[in-house]
Design a protein around this nucleic acid. Structure first.
Lengths: 233, 233
DNA sequence: TTAGAATTCAAACAAACGTTTGACCGATTC
DNA sequence: GAATCGGTCAAACGTTTGTTTGAATTCTAA
């Protein structure tokens, strides 16, 4: 037999699946994919060890399910928001601020909603971005492809003077700063240390990040912007 | 007996140690810490399985040795370069460009030098930044503490209008974009796709990154820079 | 109420892990 | 030339890993 049959969602099945997903989300976030065992997950979820393979097929498929559960709705929300902003602004092109807002607001909403995993999931997502496992990279690339393409087009209209190549790079840097920030164990501690009032919510963090990224995106196109290495090398 | 005795470096010992470090560097870079086994490493290095524990004590200590070998000299070089730039510019404060140059140039030199691991090591470093393992985070924090403090002070002088809190955040974002960029499996492919001429060297990548980050660092201080969520939430 | 499917469960599977051991080799030293 | 020491080696250590199995249990439907 090739492959295995994942059962339908009866009420009973859905309950244990959710317990597994919740426990896996927390543990994968804490220790990463490789360092988290199915025994830890099933113990934390209060279900039998075999339940993961029964309901999800394998550890890898469980990980993908953990990501999909939150990521899919969030990315759909992002595209929908971008579309709405564009319609509201038409026929004028959208500003960088608005576009970045369309990326951040759904993430912020998710971070604020404990029922949807809250901050935990964003940290997991940031970690996944840096994970070397091929199946994770492949999964994320697929999951993000349409959204990224959509936003790249929007940024292209907002920054018409930028060559496509340069834009691709800058968006790459944006994703980097974003995922690193989200993944940050240290970042959350940094927040708490610097501004105890904001402690515990990623919102303040992302609101700090946005102006930084916008300035980078809007940076003048460099003919030859030295980092001044000539007299040093 | 607490701990174990790591032998002195006789010529024979040094040779196998280096073979192990080289193989470990490549494999840790490719698969991460957890997903790389000592058997893979010793097989690739052409040494006996027990050699790792004999020469380094444990897998964790091997990983730290892999990082230290390159990171320690590079960070010393960074601080030395910063000091030199400051002396040359005195009594005027250093520009952001120069400061960032002091961070990037040693990294570029390392990336260009195949004898020192070249690109491989920078990718490994980027990965390590995102690794959840406590011993890695602890190690990096210690290893970077003095360098970061030194650069933060320099940036503080270059951007006197920025509150310390804001500066801490922006430096955090800089480190994020930098490490994500270095770690990027995809980034290198991106380079090759966008500009085959530059293919294979991280230099072009970092030269693109610098202006982006400088613009972010210099971004005006936001009183309340909306990402415009009010009418969307 | 009973047949049958869906789910749970304890137990076992083979494989891989990091680490340790004790015999063995080769050079250096007394 | 015997003793010593640093180093290598094959083999085994005890755990832990993801996955599978087949019997018990719970639910569903006729």
């Amino acid at each position: 037999m090739r492959g295995k049959v994942i059962p339908f969602d009866t009420p009973r099945s859905a309950a244990t699946q959710e317990k597994i997903l919740d426990a896996a989300e927390a543990l994968f976030m804490e220790h990463g994919f490789e360092a988290t065992s199915l025994r830890q997950i099933t113990a934390a979820a209060g279900v039998n060890l075999a339940a993961v393979n029964y309901h999800f097929g394998s550890k890898e498929e469980l990980f993908q399910a953990v990501l999909t559960r939150r990521l899919d709705p969030m990315n759909q929300e992002r595209v929908a928001l971008l579309t709405r902003f564009e319609r509201e602004a038409a026929p004028r092109p959208l500003s960088c601020e608005k576009i970045l807002g369309a990326m951040f607001i759904p993430a912020l909403r998710l971070a604020r909603d404990p029922r949807r995993g809250g901050k935990n999931f964003l940290r997991l997502l940031g970690r996944a971005y840096a994970d070397p496992a091929p199946f994770i990279r492949h999964f994320l690339t697929e999951q993000y492809a349409v959204m990224i393409a959509r936003f790249k087009a929007a940024f292209g209209r907002a920054l018409p003077h930028l060559p496509k190549k340069e834009l691709s790079w800058r968006l790459h840097f944006v994703m980097g700063a974003l995922s690193y920030t989200l993944a940050g164990t240290d970042a959350l501690k940094l927040i708490a240390a610097l501004n105890p009032r904001d402690s515990g919510n990623d919102e303040a963090l992302l609101r700090r990040l946005a102006p930084f990224l916008i300035a980078g995106l809007k940076a003048p196109l460099s003919q030859d912007d030295e980092i001044d290495g000539e007299n040093a090398v």
